[in-house]
Amino acid sequence: MESRGKPGFSGAGSLSGSRRSYMGAAAAAPSKPAVDGCGVALRVFILAATLVAAVVMGLDRQTSTVQVTIADTLPPLQVPVTAKWSYSSAFVYFVVANAMACVYSAVALAACRSRSAVAPLMVGDLVVQALLFSAVGAAAEFGILGERGNSHVRWGKVCHVYSSFCERAMAAVIVSLVAAFANLVHLMFAILDVHKNSSYY
């Protein structure tokens, strides 16, 4: 007498059913990764720090009065002179770079729940890293020049005239440098997380 296996009770049917149920569960799995609290906190800090750095430098301005001697027989003239962030290309680059980093951090916070955005966000973090460090270097170099001058090319120091301007610029550079290091730490954590979850290792 010929025996007929009932579908769903044979081993093959059970195996295929388990495979289908597994694939269905995988398809039904959520596409959004779990929220990384440390990563979100770092991104919020980077957003706030770059915003503060851009605003402080963008509002930096000071007008001082200097004495100009035309001739020894004439009394010196009192001339008002103004220092402003837009007069320096290094400070302009600093403000633009920090503003771009701030906007990117806001976009990254909105997209951090999407798995498809992991690779683009890492590339964006690398670009922001380069922007912040280069902007900090350019602004710091110009600030040191204003603080100490350059005797080789006969450029005099000006921070003794614009003390408040230089102090605010230095504060903005320090805040942006801290934001750059925070972005570096976040990028290192993201690389380690990808390495840990990679199927190649």
Rank of each mutant, 00 (worst) to 15 (best):
K6P: 00
I174N: 06
I70G: 07
W85S: 14
C102Y: 08
T82C: 08
G149A: 03
P75A: 15
F45A: 09
V66Y: 00
V153L: 07
V127F: 03
R168Q: 10
M100R: 10
G11S: 00
R43Y: 10
R168T: 05
S3E: 12
V35Q: 03
G11Q: 01
S151H: 04
V92H: 03
A83P: 00
D72G: 15
L42T: 08
V173M: 06
R148S: 12
S31C: 07
W85R: 08
V35F: 05
A29P: 13
I191Q: 01
A29G: 15
M170F: 02
Y201G: 07
A111Y: 07
C112I: 12
K196D: 10
Q67D: 14
A179D: 09
V107S: 09
K6C: 08
W85H: 08
V56K: 02
A111V: 08
V127D: 04
G17K: 07
V173Y: 01
P80F: 02
F133W: 03
W85T: 11
L109A: 05
A130P: 03
V79R: 02
V107M: 12
S198W: 04
M122C: 09
A101P: 06
V128I: 15
A26V: 15
I70T: 05
R154D: 02
V128Q: 04
A110Y: 01
A48T: 10
V103I: 12
S176M: 12
L184N: 05
G8S: 15
R148K: 08
T69E: 15
A130Y: 06
A180K: 00
E147F: 02
C38R: 10
L74R: 06
V161F: 00
V153E: 06
G8F: 15
A90Q: 11
C166T: 00
Q78C: 07
R115E: 07
C102V: 05
S164Y: 00
L77G: 10
A180M: 04
S18M: 11
V175E: 00
S3A: 11
V44P: 02
A28T: 14
A106H: 05
I46A: 04
A83V: 01
S134D: 14
V173C: 11
G39R: 10
K196N: 06
V95H: 02
R168E: 11
R43T: 12
L177M: 07
V103R: 11
L184V: 09
S164G: 02
F133Y: 07
A34W: 05
V52C: 14
L51R: 09
V95F: 03
A117Y: 02
M122H: 05
E141L: 05
N150T: 04
L47T: 05
K196I: 02
C38L: 13
T69M: 15
A119T: 10
T65A: 11
R61W: 01
R154G: 01
L109Q: 03
A99G: 15
V96D: 13
E167K: 00
A172H: 07
V173H: 01
